[in-house]
Write a protein that binds this DNA or RNA. Structure first.
Length: 199
DNA sequence: CACAGGATCGTT
DNA sequence: ACGATCCTGTGT
């Protein structure tokens, strides 16, 4: 199976987000199935890190699609994003939850030998499980971080994004968090509802 | 140089 | 509900 090509990411972040649920991300011996993501769009999204303009930290967001944007959150957690849209368009998809596919022993060692969904339900846990840090920011998604396409189209659930109370109400409430329906490997599952674009 | 504020997590 | 923990961005 070959990695998703840059053209996959060269679309609106919300479309890319929907197509990333069920895909797999790998780094080293660890491979995870993506179960939950969030889209940070542009322009006009007041939750987006790009809202304050280009800085040294968020510069990869302005780069070519199909690259990683990794940043340190609260001084503790490394959050993994994928850059979307054409070059110069700072929109991304944040990975929020996953389930293990390979490298479970290493994941458990990195995550304190936990088991079950608490192992990987949360964006900080993804970065920790994959062994990421800010040196991975700006690297292309054909290595060392690699993303593989999903096989089947899954049922999705949607809801507002998490932890963005600073954003304007319209952006706070936008259902731009996308998750795998009926999966236990999802953060804040009670805040998700059926995907309105189905049926 | 000083300060305030995080796209979180785990415990209380 | 709260503290950890530190980098980033801004202002002086």
């Amino acid at each position: 199976m070959s990695p998703l090509p840059p053209a996959f990411y060269d679309r609106d972040a919300l479309e890319v987000a929907r197509d990333l649920v069920g895909a797999e991300v790998a780094h080293g011996d660890v491979r995870l199935r993506i179960t939950e993501v969030e889209a940070y769009r542009y322009p006009g999204d007041t939750a987006n890190h790009a809202r304050m303009g280009r800085t040294k930290r968020n510069a990869p967001m302005w780069g070519a699609p199909g690259h990683a944007y990794v940043y340190l959150c609260y001084g503790l957690h490394h959050l993994l994003n994928f850059v979307t849209g054409p070059e110069g368009h700072p929109a991304v998809v944040l990975l929020r939850a996953a389930e293990p596919v390979a490298g479970l022993e290493l994941v458990r060692a990195r995550r304190g030998n936990l088991s079950g969904p608490t192992l990987l339900t949360g964006p900080g846990k993804i970065g920790q499980a994959l062994g990421l840090d800010t040196t991975h920011s700006g690297t292309p998604l054909d290595g060392p971080i690699v993303v593989y396409p999903r096989i089947e189209t899954p049922r999705l659930v949607v809801g507002p994004r998490v932890g963005i109370d600073y954003a304007e109400p319209g952006d706070r409430d936008a259902p731009w968090r996308i998750a795998l329906a009926e999966s236990r490997w999802v953060s804040h599952p009670n805040r998700l509802r059926a995907d309105p674009s189905i049926g």
